[in-house]
Simulated scan of single mutants.
Amino acid sequence: MDLRPIRRLKPDPGAPSLSDQQRAQWPMTVPAVAQLVTEGLELPAGALVLVGENGSGKSTVMELIATTLGLNPEGGSTGARHRTRASEPESLGLVVERSPGASRWGYFLRDETLHGLYSYLEANPTDRPEPVFHELSHGEAFLEVFTSRAAGKGTYLLDEPDAALSFGGSLALVSHLLALVDRGAQVVVATHSPVVAALPGAQLVEVGEWGLRPTQWEELELTVHWRQFLTDPAAFLRHLR
């Protein structure tokens, strides 16, 4: 039996086709978005990790997935209502195919809007004791929010969590993601971290001018460049002068 909370995102056959004008405008000019809207995206059981350079479209893809799943595009669950400046794409005709009876719980965390999310959570406290998120370090607050909200089956989206985390924090995140997957959750992560990208059992997708393509950790430019840099930093950096 297929127990994935989300089986796939797919184009709605009943939705009107995008006009030529819409296809010529952002975000459809992002190859990864155009591919997602045209072909859809299968979500594997366990973890899907998106890796790519700045500007490749990772965050836009994450925003589009979050919007399609009904999650707050600035972070939080379906019930979160905080908004600062609406800049995220609409669902662009995508619909969700869920497994019957599967958990509909989900949560979205993205590094660039964490400050606003912390303020929202502090202004709307739950019935359980929580820290003052703004009094924690960036990484501590991120891990506190994530580990307290991501505790069971559901779908969890993380956009560049490594921006908040040290090496040790990244390992702690990987450990929690593995525990979630073991409990039947799905996670989708966009990252620049070779540590997070090495998440055991994850399906890796490289995002770039080609759109979305499956890859292996050893083949990632991210992995190659970090390995070269750590082997001989001076040799790598002399080309910057």
Rank of each mutant, 00 (worst) to 15 (best):
R110S: 02
V174D: 03
F133I: 11
P161D: 00
G76M: 09
T68L: 01
T78P: 11
N72D: 10
A151Q: 14
V96D: 00
T84H: 14
L114I: 05
G101L: 07
S91Y: 08
L114K: 14
A141I: 11
K153H: 08
E160C: 01
H134M: 06
T147R: 14
S148N: 05
E112K: 14
S103M: 11
G76T: 09
P125C: 05
T155H: 02
E97M: 14
V174H: 01
E135T: 12
L173Y: 08
Y156W: 13
V174I: 07
A86D: 05
S166A: 00
G75Y: 15
N72V: 12
L64K: 13
T147L: 03
P125R: 05
F142G: 06
R85S: 13
T126Y: 12
V145Q: 03
M62N: 04
A141Q: 03
L157R: 02
A150E: 14
G152R: 08
N124K: 14
L117N: 03
L143G: 06
E130L: 04
A151L: 11
F108E: 10
S137E: 13
A151E: 13
P131Q: 10
R110H: 11
D127M: 05
A150M: 15
L173S: 10
E88M: 07
P100N: 02
F146K: 04
E135K: 15
E112V: 14
S91N: 08
G106P: 14
H138M: 15
S137I: 01
A102T: 14
A164G: 06
G152K: 08
E122V: 13
R83Y: 07
T126A: 04
F167H: 02
A80T: 13
S170N: 06
E130H: 05
T68P: 04
S148W: 04
L92A: 09
R104G: 01
E140N: 09
I65D: 00
L143F: 12
Y156G: 00
L71S: 03
E140Y: 01
A80I: 04
V132F: 13
E130P: 01
P89A: 01
P161N: 01
L136T: 14
L171C: 08
